[in-house]
C-alpha cells in the first residue's frame, strides 16, 4: 500500500552495503530518487519495504582529485557538479550535460549516479562521461572494484551491477592536460517526453592544427551508450579541416544505429541532424583545446 515502509540513512559505505544485504526486503538504494519515486508512483517499479538513502555516505558525496584523476561521487547532486571548479576545469562536457538535465529544483536532488544507473542510451550525464573516458568504482560486500565505464551497461535499462549487493560509488575522469578539452550538445523537441532526440559529447587532444586523439559519444546510437570508435580512429592524427570532419561524420553515421523512436524522432530525422550536432560539438571542443 505504501511505496516504502522503512527509510534508512546509512552513514558509511560499509553500513550501506550491510543494509542492502540485511534490511527487510525488498530493499532498494535511493540516491536523489527523482526517478525512482516516480517509477514507484507510476507503477513502473513495485513498492519496496526499505529505501536505503545513499546521500549521507561521505565517499559518494565527494568531488576530489585522486592522483591523475578527478573523482565524482555517485550521489553528488547535478547542481553541485555544475558549480564545481574542478569539474569545470577538467570536464566541460559533463558541465554542459548536467546543465541540460531537468530543472534547478530537480538538479539539487538528482545525482550523476542515478543518471548513469538508469542505463539509458541517451542519458546526458552518461554520454558525457563516456566521451571523458570515465571509470566507475563499484562497491561490493568484499570491497570496491574499478571498471571501465562502458562495462556498466548491458542494454537499455540494464546494468551489470548486482542490485542486491552492489553500489556505484563514483566515477573517475582523467584530469585534463594542456591541449585537451571537451564539449556536449543536444537536440530536443518541444513536445512529448523529455528525452533528447540526439545528444553528443566530444573530447579532443589538440596539437596545433592536428587532432592527436578524440573520443566521441552519441546518444541514442544503439541499445547501450554509444562510443563512436570508428569515427574517432578516422580522425585521430588528422588535421582539423572540413574535409576530415566530414569524413568522420560519414563514419559516425555508418557505425551508429540511429533508429526511430515513436513520438520522438524518426531515424531519418536523427541522421539528418546528426552531422550538424556532431560538427558543432566537435568544433566547440576543438576551439577550447587551444594551448594558451
Amino acid at each position: 500500500m505504501y511505496q516504502w515502509q522503512e527509510y534508512r540513512q546509512p552513514k558509511s559505505l560499509a553500513e550501506a552495503i550491510e543494509d542492502l544485504s540485511n534490511a527487510p526486503v525488498p530493499a532498494v538504494p535511493i540516491a536523489g530518487g527523482t526517478d525512482l519515486l516516480l517509477d514507484m508512483r507510476q507503477g513502473r517499479h513495485s513498492n519496496v519495504h526499505t529505501l536505503i538513502d545513499l546521500t549521507n555516505i561521505p565517499e559518494m558525496n565527494t568531488i576530489e582529485i585522486q592522483g591523475e584523476s578527478l573523482f565524482i561521487g555517485a550521489c553528488v547532486s547535478i547542481n553541485r557538479i555544475i558549480n564545481d571548479p574542478l569539474v569545470q576545469r577538467n570536464a566541460q562536457a559533463l558541465i554542459e550535460a548536467c546543465d541540460l538535465i531537468a530543472g534547478p529544483q530537480v538538479r539539487n536532488i538528482a545525482t550523476l549516479g542515478g543518471n548513469v544507473a538508469h542505463a539509458l542510451p541517451a542519458a546526458d550525464g552518461t554520454i558525457a562521461l563516456l566521451a571523458l573516458s570515465a571509470t566507475a568504482n563499484v562497491a561490493f560486500p568484499g570491497g570496491v572494484r574499478t571498471m571501465q565505464f562502458q562495462e556498466l551497461f548491458l542494454g537499455p535499462g540494464k546494468t551489470s551491477i548486482d542490485k542486491q549487493t552492489e553500489l556505484i560509488v563514483g566515477f573517475s575522469i582523467p584530469l585534463a592536460k594542456p591541449g585537451q578539452a571537451s564539449a556536449f550538445k543536444r537536440i530536443m523537441r518541444p513536445q512529448g517526453v523529455a528525452l533528447p532526440i540526439l545528444n553528443c559529447a566530444v573530447w579532443v587532444e589538440r596539437e596545433g592544427n592536428r587532432i592527436n586523439a578524440s573520443r566521441i559519444a552519441v546518444g541514442p546510437g544503439g541499445p547501450r551508450p554509444f562510443r563512436a570508435t570508428k569515427a574517432e580512429n578516422s580522425i585521430s592524427g588528422q588535421y582539423f579541416n572540413d574535409d576530415n570532419i566530414s569524413k568522420a561524420t560519414e563514419v559516425l553515421l555508418e557505425q551508429g544505429s540511429f533508429r526511430t523512436s515513436p513520438r520522438r524522432a524518426t531515424s531519418e530525422y536523427r541522421k539528418s541532424i546528426l552531422p550538424g550536432l556532431f560538427q558543432g560539438t566537435f568544433k566547440k571542443a576543438w576551439s577550447r583545446a587551444v594551448v594558451e
Partner: peptide
C-alpha cells in the same frame, strides 16, 4: 521539489 523528497531525508 517537496513532492519527490522523502520526508525521512
Amino acid at each position: 521539489l517537496s513532492c519527490i523528497y522523502p520526508a525521512g531525508r
